Amino acid sequence: DETGKELVLVLYDYQEKSPREVTIKKGDILTLLNSTNKDWWKIEVNDRQGFVPAAYLKKLD
């Protein structure tokens, strides 16, 4: 059920640097789980959840 889920576009590649982070690729469109922290957003990638720098993402309307 995708209702109410926010999507984000990945602006730059990011390689995870800790187990709490996930790797993302430029151009991916992913589900945003939590954006309350202005610097690190929690997203879902391939059934994995983790954090990436918010500056690497853009919210889609």
Rank of each mutant, 00 (worst) to 15 (best):
P19V: 09
Y12K: 13
E44Q: 14
V45I: 12
P19E: 10
K17W: 03
L11K: 05
W40L: 04
Q49A: 10
D1W: 14
V45S: 08
A54H: 04
A54R: 13
E16G: 13
T3H: 15
L57C: 07
F51I: 08
K26F: 05
Q49E: 11
R48I: 07
K25T: 11
V22Y: 03
D61K: 14
W41C: 02
D1E: 12
A55C: 10
Y14W: 09
L11G: 01
K26I: 05
N46A: 12
I29D: 00
T36C: 12
Q49F: 07
Y12T: 08
I24D: 00
Y12W: 12
D47I: 06
A54F: 02
R20M: 15
D39M: 14
W40Q: 03
Y56C: 12
L11A: 03
I24W: 01
V8Q: 00
E16I: 10
G50M: 06
E21P: 05
D13H: 05
K26G: 06
E21D: 04
E16Y: 05
K5M: 11
G27I: 01
L9S: 04
L7G: 04
L7A: 06
L60P: 03
T3N: 13
K58L: 14
G27A: 03
T36M: 11
L32M: 04
L32G: 00
W40I: 03
Q15I: 15
E21V: 02
K26C: 07
N46E: 13
N34S: 12
Y12I: 08
Y14E: 00
K26S: 08
L57T: 02
Y56K: 05
I43Q: 00
Y12S: 10
D13P: 06
K59P: 09
T36P: 03
V22P: 01
V8Y: 08
L9G: 03
K17S: 09
K38D: 10
V22G: 02
R48K: 10
G4Y: 15
L30R: 10
D13E: 05
L33V: 11
G4C: 11
L60S: 04
E44G: 06
K58T: 12
Y56L: 10
G4H: 14
A55N: 11
N37M: 09
R20S: 14
L33H: 05
V45T: 13
Q15E: 15
V52F: 02
K5F: 12
D13Q: 03
W41G: 00
W40K: 02
V22Q: 03
G4F: 13
D61E: 14
V8E: 00
L9Q: 07
V52P: 00
K59G: 04
E6T: 14
I43P: 00
L57R: 00
P53M: 03
A55I: 15
V8P: 00
N34T: 07
D13C: 04
N37C: 09
L30G: 15
T23I: 03
W40F: 06
I29G: 00
Y12D: 11
Y56N: 11
R20W: 15
D61S: 14
L9K: 06
K42D: 03
R20A: 15
E21K: 04
G4P: 12
I24Q: 00
E21S: 05
V22D: 01
N37I: 06
W41V: 02
R48Y: 06
T31V: 15
L57V: 09
K42G: 05
L60E: 04
D28H: 08
D1G: 15
N46G: 14
D28C: 08
L33I: 15
T23V: 04
L33D: 01
L7R: 15
D39C: 11
R48L: 06
S18K: 08
D47A: 08
Y12H: 14
L9T: 05
D47T: 08
L11W: 03
F51R: 03
